[in-house]
Write a protein that binds this DNA or RNA. Structure first.
Lengths: 113, 113
DNA sequence: ATCATGCTTAGCCATGTCTCTAACTATACT
DNA sequence: AGTATAGTTAGAGACATGGCTAAGCATGAT
């Protein structure tokens, strides 16, 4: 299968880890430095760094280094493709439901004649 | 970090693969048997089976076997937790924006005095 | 200049993922 | 009964992931 949506795959993969989701939730309340993010996870710094780079490569966060401190911030628009995919999926599903409804309606009309 | 949301992890992981997403999109148009789903992927049956069981374990599809044919169907409500998580995330983000706005408003008031 | 802080790099290990082939089972067709 | 069809199981191989330790490198504080 062609990988038509590398973005979506990256995004969903980034979101599939509880640690990464908790980092995002934390960041939703405001930017934070690396150590600050690592602290509540109970994980070692290099491990958290890895999570952060997964998030950054997915475009979910942006980071910048000032002096020796790296500050991380959420990129809220990054979730748009996910939302869009969900909406599209629901749209197709609903279209199908509509067609099914039409079909049932048609059946009932035919029956009532 | 405690894994408070095994469901979400399963769901996001299931959605992180293009093949699996394409299967879901196909299923959104109506139920299908395994071979039918395998066909357009260009993958071997066992591989597709694996994808299907990932989708099933995440609760995204339901399958039933009739004779030697297994039919797969979408479970559209399964996406609800994902949608909820996205909404929650956005809510926190917007709350933060509001607080920021309040702060700015306050600053401006102070300044104008 | 020295030391502490904050991050980064390198490399290891166990486990998980995605794909395959080969062989098997169970159901339908003739 | 014999053959084709639809799926399943088992297992292998290549690579990714998530965690770690140990060592390195800037930058800020004294």
């Amino acid at each position: 299968m062609a990988k038509h949506d590398p973005d979506l795959s990256l995004l969903f993969h980034a979101l599939s880890d509880p640690t990464r989701r908790s980092i995002l939730t934390r960041l939703a309340e405001g930017p934070a430095r690396v150590t600050e993010l690592a602290d509540p996870t109970g994980l070692r710094l290099p491990t958290v760094m890895r999570h952060l780079s997964v998030l950054e490569e997915a475009g979910l966060i942006a980071t910048a280094k000032d002096g020796r401190v790296r500050t991380c911030a959420l990129v809220p628009e990054a979730l748009t493709p996910v939302r869009t995919w969900l909406d599209d999926q629901r749209a197709i599903w609903e279209a199908r439901l509509d067609r099914l409804e039409d079909y049932v309606t048609k059946l009932m009309k035919e029956r009532s004649q």
